[in-house]
Design a protein around this nucleic acid. Structure first.
Lengths: 224, 224
DNA sequence: CCATCATTCAAGTAGTTTCTTGAATGATGT
DNA sequence: ACATCATTCAAGAAACTACTTGAATGATGG
């Protein structure tokens, strides 16, 4: 691999990193890992892929240097090798996909039939409102992800339980919902559902990993 | 492609962008295009690929939204669809490859046998020295790339001619050499060669595209 | 209108990637 | 030592990607 010209060797290295993120399942694994470390089995379950297949994809990500693993007893926990670098790469991909396709927004809109759910709250805007105490922050991710870290003062109502537990929400206060990242579907669905019930809700522009990467405070576990 | 779940459709879009950069030849094409727009034939020639093959790779890049094309007479000129976004993506790839591999630095070092050639000058540092007028800026890219834009006050001695035209350089002044980007091989070779001849030379940390992207002044054609 | 030339298309082959299945590994606790 | 369970490995089938070759397209300039 390094017997070629150095130019080719270098481009081959960069291409290898790109190949690692050039598969939908691996991107989904990375989105999961951006929430915090996870065992192979849990990752396979979350991404609806067989365990052997998830293991293979994870190996691919490890070889490319995107993901690191540690063994603890029977389990092998995987995590992002470098949060900032990986989130940066994913953000770059997203940015180009957005520029290019309009397809991306089309997908989101045609699915939700609701342009309004797109007007998102920025991080600084949310910080201001948090300080003013005029907003309820709603984390719609599953409980275990919430436990690994969440926005300060957020309450956790996983999407699956949201409908049953509407009573936990104050109908008079504005709600800001967030989830795993800018294209995590959970928060879109939560917003659509809560709006239909008369709540005043908006989405945070992106998710917990980006909040953490911006150096803003996080409650819960301190692990990356 | 959008009949699947929206989540899958989105990840598939992002993966498509990643696939486009997941091939060494396409990365090399992008490095070329970052210097300025080019016809298919010239690109094929520069990247040492058959014309039909280059055409296919360029189509791939266009479909992914990284590259745009315009026809002018017999020629089809390609350019980066969005300079910032594409450079950003390439930078992210590089960053991870660097973190991970050590392989990348190893390739560079084992080829050049010279650790010193790595200590690069940053852009602000070069700006300061330019103002103070104490440095010669040397552009070692081919003439046509130089013509499309170069650093203010730079002199152009393509690597292929450098050895023959050493007399054009003032041996008393410090030289800063640059080229197409952070891993463009030309400037490494120029530095190695000139040092062997007793010149005081360093590399600019990256190349013209990054200089332009940082909003610093460029001489020559104004096109992207 | 014809010859030219840059580019694209089409079809075929070689090589790579993905996913499945079932077996192998390696740590745990009894 | 043994059974258990998470993970990895190995091998094969199906799908995709890269590159080559030669023909097709489409603009140009005589």
């Amino acid at each position: 691999m390094s017997s070629e010209s150095p130019k080719q060797a270098l481009f081959a290295q960069f291409a290898a990193v790109a190949k690692a993120v050039a598969h939908p399942h691996r991107l989904e694994l990375l989105e999961q890992l951006a929430q915090g470390e996870r065992s192979v089995e849990v990752l396979a379950d979350r991404t609806r892929v067989s365990v052997a297949n998830a293991s293979q994809h994870l190996q691919h990500l490890r070889r490319a240097g995107l993901v690191a693993a540690r063994r603890d007893g029977k389990f092998v926990f995987h995590r992002l090798a470098d949060d900032d670098a990986v989130l940066g790469l994913l953000t770059s991909l997203r940015r180009i996909a957005e520029l290019q396709s309009a397809e991306v927004e089309r997908v989101v809109r045609s699915y939700f039939n609701d342009r309004d759910s797109l007007e998102a709250v920025s991080r600084p805007e949310l910080m201001d409102r948090l300080k003013a105490g005029i907003v309820t922050v709603l984390d719609v991710r599953p409980e275990d992800e919430f436990a690994l870290g969440h926005l300060p003062g957020a309450i956790n109502l996983p999407l699956s339980e949201l409908e049953r537990r509407l009573a936990d929400l104050d109908p008079g206060r504005e709600i800001v919902a967030y989830c795993r990242g800018p294209y995590c579907v959970l928060s879109y669905e939560a917003v659509a559902m809560l709006r239909a019930r008369g709540f005043k809700v908006r989405r945070l522009e992106d998710g917990l990993p980006e909040w953490r990467a911006a150096g803003l405070p996080v409650e819960g576990s301190t692990s990356a």
